[in-house]
């Protein structure tokens, strides 16, 4: 943040007009994430559009996608938000140990999710269900893969934060990167709920 508007933030704070709780960066992150979320919304809309036009989507074997395994994976991903919260609330109190442990926990759980997704992919591909298996394959791998990409980006982000945390870059006052990492991670989680519901749960309801 340039010093020039550091001055301005100060004046605004003096006048009590800077809704004190959140930093500019926090707001920036919010709007960035909401735009990102809309990409998912568009992909989901495309997914549903093609699915409706196709009538009924099945694997080459004629079955639906297996939902038990990804459900398990979902639980892990959602669970990984907990250590992320711990990490941030830890550093907010100046507890660097909790920060490191929390980050580690999130990273491990996130990696398990990614590994699980990779396993699921190999499994499906071995059944000849690939990116170019009709529109189903295209839509499935694109949507879940795009989410996987976000998980990967999130993980890299968290690893960088972890390294910086180990170097002692963060303090109770100054740790926006941690907050941003946590926000991004929650976003990745929340979006997964939508993706999971669209891809795995909806066909169950439709029968």
């Amino acid at each position: 943040m340039s010093t020039a508007h550091g001055e301005q933030v100060r004046v605004l704070e003096e006048h009590g007009e800077l809704g004190a709780t959140h930093s500019l960066n926090w707001w920036g992150m919010i709007f960035f994430i909401s735009s990102e979320a809309l990409i998912f919304a568009n992909l989901i809309a495309a997914y549903l559009y093609l699915e409706i036009r196709a009538g009924r989507w099945t694997l080459p074997s004629g079955d639906h996608l297996d939902v038990i395994y990804p459900a398990f994976n979902t639980v892990i991903l959602l669970g990984s938000s907990v250590p992320a919260i711990l990490a941030r609330s830890g550093i907010a109190k100046g507890d660097k140990r909790r920060l490191v442990l929390g980050l580690l926990g999130t990273i491990i759980m996130g990696s398990v999710f990614l590994g699980g997704q990779a396993y699921e992919y190999t499994n499906l591909i071995s059944q000849n269900f690939t990116l170019n298996y009709k529109t189903f394959g295209s839509a499935f791998f694109t949507l879940t893969g795009f989410h996987g990409l976000h998980v990967t980006v999130g993980l890299i982000f968290l690893i960088v934060i972890l390294i910086r945390a180990l170097r002692g870059d963060f303090t109770a006052k100054k740790h926006f990167a941690v907050e941003a990492g946590e926000m991004y991670w929650h976003f990745v989680d929340l979006v997964w709920i939508l993706v999971f519901s669209t891809v795995y749960l909806l066909p169950l309801i439709r029968g």
């Binding site: 990116l131 170019n132 529109t135 394959g137 295209s138």
Partner: peptide, 18 residues
């Protein structure tokens, strides 16, 4: 870009896309 280079079929009607 995926349709053009990765073999997906989003817009390819011959493969069910639209």
């Amino acid at each position: 870009l995926l349709d053009r280079h990765a073999g997906t079929h989003f817009y390819q009607y011959a493969f069910g896309g639209d």
